[in-house]
Design a protein around this nucleic acid. Structure first.
Lengths: 136, 136
DNA sequence: GTAACTGCAAAATATTTGCATCCTT
DNA sequence: AAGGATGCAAATATTTTGCAGTTAC
């Protein structure tokens, strides 16, 4: 799905800023910080607009905030919308100790961890155990 | 280990601020934000001192930053020092695809995830797959 | 034309730095 | 006594808010 259709799908007006920010996400294929984005826009748009754009996208579920172990605030496109297939299965799984059912928490992305020097990362799995919505 | 000995172990002078902050961590037994700590100090110490204290503790490995999925910056005592035994086994594990050895990354704490409404959390496991320091 | 979006200014918040004074060792 | 830690003031950085002008639909 291209940037324009994506915006329409979420009933957002198609504007320059939004298209630019979406293109930046699509091209990078990964997680970006506010200042990464600001940098790549090269002053084309106001800093405040970037904040508002990211907020809007996050509200609509186009992007997610991804926390990292060094506490930078990163954003990334959500899986569903990532037509290019570049995304991994990077949401958190939940195992309920009552019903023993494992649920995909699609809205909860796996945080990015910062590994010690020398480690190369391939894949991250995160499983939360507890009591699910239905069993509580 | 009590707060005073802990400071001595890390060759830090024993001061009011540091003792207070350590006590707050020990009593809470969990992760705290800068403002949590500031709040519990009730104006007894300067805001800047809290920043510096947290920084010093983090440098020495007394506390860790813990990212969360809602991007609050949280700190918690490191396991080793947590004499009370209140800590869980909350560091990240690393599975190397070359040597197939699983390593504890003691320095990398498992981020706190914010679950959707209705879920109760018990335990979190995080496993990173990749190539370890020795095999790379 | 109307509602929504943007850019600018400025407020609010969060974090860092410099320096003189005070406290720990 | 000496070095480090604190508190205050102020500089910087980050994020939010208000509003007038502009743009998408």
């Amino acid at each position: 799905m291209n940037a324009q259709d994506l915006l329409k799908k979420y009933q957002l007006s198609v504007t320059d800023s939004r298209l630019s920010v979406l293109h930046i996400f699509m091209q990078s294929g990964g997680a970006l910080s506010h200042s990464d984005i600001e940098g790549r826009l090269k002053g084309l748009h106001d800093r405040v607009t970037v904040y508002r754009t990211l907020q809007t996208f996050a509200d609509k579920g186009i992007i997610h905030q991804i926390p990292t172990t060094d506490n930078a605030v990163l954003y990334a496109l959500c899986k569903e919308n990532c037509a290019g297939g570049h995304h991994h299965d990077n949401h958190v799984h939940f195992l309920c100790t009552e019903c023993e059912i494992t649920t995909c928490l699609d809205d909860v992305m796996v945080p990015t961890v910062k590994l010690p020097r020398g480690f190369r990362q391939n894949d991250v799995k995160m499983v939360v155990t507890g009591v699910c919505k239905l069993c509580k």
